[in-house]
């Protein structure tokens, strides 16, 4: 299971302030907390700064990597910002994201072929958001096909089925879940990733919904998630689900979490 720690995102007010004030210590503290909680990648997103994103994204990479020995997830649709961030990144970054939308794909191609990287590939259609499971599976097939052709290895492709809110259409949960199942069946080697917060938009007690969705998605073959690793209840759900899915030999992670006090009062 691959965890991408989502907290360093300038759409969060405290992060936005820290980036604007170039408060490296604050950013590093958040990076360390996520690393200690089990993150495999630290997501960095400076999208709210628009033009200044090109300066802030590489600054975030350097700031984070000075504090933790982890690769970053470079979270931007902006090729110029990604290029600058990749230039200063140590190790192999996870780039978030590419999709089949014609302009976007063409603009991203030089970015993803210039240096080794892993890639989040969104199951977005060329002209519309996907609604059904079939549309997602079709987009996944096209993405995998295109990315393999430019030399990306299957395990370096992280398919994101695009989770949409159940509040708006109650079929959205099963649409994403059955897409995860179908993609997993066809491609045992690719990674399948998703963000967990979209599912609960527009509803109360969002974290509860997010946790259950994570467990259900893991059951379908999700292998990576963008989440807050410091959220104890989320970690508890993740560890419990993995144990139940035979992904935790001798239930050791689960028991370790119990001993670490992570499972109580969640």
């Amino acid at each position: 299971m691959i965890i991408v720690g989502e907290l360093i995102n300038t759409s969060r007010k405290r992060i936005e302030k820290a980036v604007r004030e170039q408060d490296a210590a604050f950013i590093q503290q958040i990076a360390k907390a996520q690393a200690e909680a089990g993150a495999d990648y630290i997501d960095v997103n400076a999208g709210t700064f628009l033009e200044k994103e090109e300066a802030y994204l590489p600054w975030l990479v350097q700031t984070v990597q000075a504090a933790v020995a982890l690769p970053c997830c470079l979270d931007s649709p902006n090729p110029a910002a990604l290029n600058k961030a990749m230039s200063v990144h140590r190790g192999v970054p996870l780039i978030n994201s590419i999709s089949l939308e014609t302009d976007r794909y063409d603009q991203m191609l030089p970015v993803i072929t210039r240096a080794p990287c892993k890639l989040v590939a969104l199951c977005m259609g060329q002209t519309a958001m996907p609604t059904t499971s079939q549309e997602r599976v079709l987009a996944a097939e096209q993405l995998i096909d295109a990315l393999v052709r430019v030399g990306i290895d299957l395990p370096d492709i992280f398919i994101d089925p695009l989770v949409q809110p159940v509040s708006v259409d109650t079929r959205m949960g099963t649409a994403a879940l059955s897409a995860i199942g179908a993609i997993r069946e066809r491609h045992p080697q690719v990674n399948i990733i998703c963000g967990l917060s979209n599912i609960s938009f527009g509803l109360p007690e969002r974290r509860l919904i997010n946790r259950y969705f994570l467990a259900l998605a893991l059951g379908k073959g999700l292998s990576a998630a963008i989440l807050d690793p410091t959220d104890r209840a989320m970690s508890a759900a993740l560890k419990t689900a993995r144990m139940l899915l035979d992904q935790d030999e001798y239930c050791s992670d689960y028991i370790e979490a119990y001993e670490g006090g992570i499972l109580s009062n969640t």
């Binding site: 809110p165 509040s167 708006v168 527009g202 509803l203 109360p204």
Partner: peptide
């Protein structure tokens, strides 16, 4: 006010 949610509004 947060007393109704998106599905109810729809």
């Amino acid at each position: 006010q947060g007393a109704m949610f998106v599905p109810q509004m729809l």
